[in-house]
């Protein structure tokens, strides 16, 4: 039988300790062990970006990361973006306002990627937004709504920070 290890991972601020197979992918750990199914898997070879999560604040492909590699680290998933159960984050609201999603499958990876971008660069240019999400494939939207959403959210977040 497969080798296992006991790991402790903090996901969206909550600590989880589990015995997991060493070959278990972080994406499968999140989805099927913790039942945080918001993180999606599109290609399992690190290209499509649907599985993107933040590990210690940096974007990472959870399909190319083993769960044991996350031992002792902090993971943020799409479930951790909204400030509370009744409210959307500016970025999420802007995605709805600008029709930045259709089927919603790539959306979690887009949101985590843009969350990181706007944290590090609160006033990105359109070019910087397009470049940031150029590693996230969306087959539905043609990206325009996503780009507009990111720029709008950035503006609202800057306004929020000032007030």
């Amino acid at each position: 039988m497969t080798d296992t290890r006991k790991i402790t991972v903090t996901v969206n601020g909550k600590s989880h300790t589990k015995e997991v197979p060493t070959r278990l992918l972080l994406s499968d750990f999140l989805r099927h062990e913790l039942l945080l199914t918001g993180t999606h898997v599109g290609c399992e070879h690190g290209v499509c970006g649907a599985c993107t999560v933040l590990i210690d604040g940096r974007s990472a492909r959870s399909c190319l990361t083993l769960a044991v590699q996350a031992n002792g680290h902090e993971v943020m998933t799409v479930e951790g973006i909204a400030p509370n159960a009744d409210e959307l984050h500016h970025l999420q609201q802007a995605m709805q306002d600008h029709h930045g999603l259709q089927c919603g499958y790539c959306t979690p990876g887009i949101l985590t990627t843009l969350f990181e971008l706007l944290r590090d660069n609160p006033d990105p240019s359109e070019h910087e937004v397009r470049s940031a999400i150029s590693g996230n494939l969306c087959r539905c939207t043609g990206y325009q709504g996503i780009v507009e959403a990111a720029l709008d959210a950035a503006q609202k977040m800057r306004a929020g920070a000032r007030s």
Binding site: R31, T37, G38, L88, Q96, G104, T107
Partner: peptide, 20 residues
């Protein structure tokens, strides 16, 4: 604005692999 979006934006979609 789409009624579908809030669930999909917060990780609450119901795709096949989300069922256990």
């Amino acid at each position: 604005k789409r009624l579908e979006d809030p669930a999909l934006l917060t990780g609450k979609g119901r795709f096949v692999d989300d069922f256990h």
